[in-house]
């Protein structure tokens, strides 16, 4: 269970998030929705440690943690960026195996085996040795999901997972997210697409524009 208590985030003297408290229960999908500019991405960036917060505490299963601290032992949060941000100089397999082998010092053979398993689960078998530029948008996104999963995070976060995809692929992403839920992955999905949110989420967190 992830708990966020009294989170406040300001840019200069503009308050974007004001004293927000929320809980993401295990094995559930939380959608974060709200109008453009409301601070959805900012909230996600605070959770993923890419922005420092002005105030607030984060707890994983009751233990406080600091998302900006990258040296802790376990990976709590995994992220799939809106524009995926795969590493163009590495193959699909290289993208996936880099962090587990370098950060967690897992043996390459084990990581590769797990990577192949995840790739075939997401319908990417045979793509191991391609470079990101050789993939379609949907495939890139799935590689980004596998790359995040390979670090075995407790929670997987997505920023606007449907925004760069054509409508046919939207349902595919929804299916992937729901499949991951079956495998007990807790997920946070930022989206402005209310239908999509209603399709996948158990819980919807509104983020409102602060005047």
């Amino acid at each position: 269970m992830l708990e966020i208590k009294n989170l406040t985030k300001r840019f200069g003297d503009r308050t974007i998030i004001d004293n927000l408290t929320m809980t993401v229960k295990d094995n559930e999908i939380m959608a974060i929705v709200g109008p453009s500019g409301a601070g959805k991405t900012t909230l996600l960036r605070c959770i993923t440690g890419l922005e420092s917060v002005n105030k607030g505490e984060f707890f994983w299963n009751g233990n406080q943690f600091d998302p900006t601290n990258t040296t802790q032992k376990d990976t709590i949060i995994g992220v799939v960026f809106q524009d995926y941000q795969l590493f163009p100089n590495l193959t699909v397999l290289g993208n996936i195996t880099l962090a587990p082998t370098m950060v967690k010092k897992e043996p390459m053979a084990d990581v590769k085996k797990y990577a192949r398993e995840l790739l075939s689960r997401l319908g990417l078998e045979g793509k191991e040795n391609l470079y990101p530029y050789q993939l379609s948008g949907g495939q890139k996104q799935r590689v980004a999901i596998v790359r995040a999963l390979a670090m075995q995070p407790k929670i997987l976060c997505y920023d606007e997972p449907t925004s760069a995809l054509d409508p046919a692929l939207r349902d595919e992403v929804a299916q992937i997210i729901l499949d991951l839920k079956k495998q007990e992955m807790t997920q946070i999905v930022v989206t402005h697409d209310m239908d999509f949110a209603k399709n996948v989420a158990n819980e919807i967190q509104q983020v409102k524009q602060i005047q």
């Binding site: 990258t70 040296t71 960026f81 941000q85 590493f87 590495l90 962090a99 950060v103 995040a148």
Partner: peptide, 24 residues
């Protein structure tokens, strides 16, 4: 975004520079 992507994967700054930034 490449730096951020590396950061959330918890690569250190020097790993990021060596494996991702320098080749690019």
């Amino acid at each position: 975004g490449q730096f951020e992507s590396a950061k959330v994967l918890r690569l250190t700054y020097s790993q990021t520079i060596r494996k991702i930034v320098i080749p690019q």
